[in-house]
Amino acid sequence: MKSSRVLGTGSYLPSRVMTNADLELIVDTTATWILERTGIEKRHLVSDGETCCDLAEAAARRALEAAGIQASDLDLILVATTTPDQFFPSTACLLQQRLGVRGCAAFDLQAVCAGFVYALDVADKFIRTGAAKHALVVGSETFSRILDWTDRTTCVLFGDGAGAVVLGASDEPGILSTHLHADGSYKDLLQVPGGIGNGRQQDAFVEMKGNEVFRIAVNTLGRIVEETLEANGLSQSDIDWLVPHQANIRIIQATARKLDLPMERVVVTVAEHGNTSSASIPLAFDQAVRDGRIQRGQMVLMEAFGGGFTWGSALIRY
């Protein structure tokens, strides 16, 4: 059976930047409080008219260039997003049209902050079963558009951006394992209650019970780290890099402690990007690949936790 390997990475951030000092002017908070509680210093936000597909396209083109393949070589396009451009067609289909591709499968996947890991799992299975030779996996979010900018408990946390990887079939192991989970019983702790079914389409803002989410996230991510290592017969010392979902510096530090991994071997972008939901892992991964920290042959553990609750991990030999 073929394995899937990462051939190239790409990312994109909107040019508009909002700092903690900027937030002090519009909501009852302080720059110091935000930094101390979350580790976030600034976040990038889309401008008027800038869409989820715009971000996805920029990240995708950079990943394709890095992979050295043409868009016409793709057999699958997956976009993980919570903030699609429209109800339908999917953002993946819109991206497919932008890339000038016809015929290959293209669809969106919604698992909020765990969306990229979920999408990576799906693409990996397409390649392992021979259904695809090349797959484009994108996490893209315009999360700022579902924030209540008067709610200081949520609006300080999130930002916009996109990250992408191109996977290719290989005889050498690349994606070693993926592990996905969900538990809908926690749906009320982190949600956007607006929707078509309940007729509240104008009430589409993030609601979060932060302390409860934090506690469950730390415990859950610790368990999935153990699950991933056990499934592959590895110990903590075998992991070269942790690329976590960039939600909160305290959650990241707690997961690193679980791995007994020094923070120097953890890719952290939360200070510059905030929480970009499904885009956060591929954004961080691309940054660390491009600046030379993550090298070919190294072992990379990705893990994420998001609304649903959904959570997952991917172990990759880059």
Rank of each mutant, 00 (worst) to 15 (best):
T51G: 06
E230M: 09
G194H: 11
Y318R: 15
N198H: 11
T30D: 06
K258N: 10
H273R: 14
A169G: 12
H44A: 13
R200P: 05
P89W: 02
N198V: 13
I216N: 05
G168I: 07
L99R: 00
D28W: 14
D48K: 06
R37N: 14
G222S: 07
Q191P: 02
G292E: 11
Q191W: 12
T276Y: 01
V206R: 06
L283G: 03
L35P: 01
T142G: 06
L190G: 05
T19S: 15
G222M: 09
F305W: 15
S278H: 09
A162Q: 03
H44N: 13
Q246Y: 06
V117P: 01
A217E: 05
E272K: 14
D260A: 13
H245S: 08
A288T: 09
A106Q: 00
R215Q: 12
R223P: 01
M1V: 09
L176D: 02
I146N: 04
L25I: 07
K42S: 15
L167M: 10
D124W: 04
R293M: 14
M208V: 05
E207H: 11
D48H: 11
S3V: 08
D48F: 09
I239S: 03
V289P: 01
I77K: 00
L136R: 01
S235H: 06
F87E: 02
R257Q: 14
A60N: 03
V268N: 04
D124P: 00
T269G: 09
T142H: 05
E57P: 04
T154N: 03
C93A: 10
G115E: 01
D28G: 12
H181C: 15
P89N: 03
A279H: 00
Q96R: 08
R223W: 04
L229K: 04
S170H: 11
F309S: 03
L261C: 12
Q298H: 02
A31Q: 08
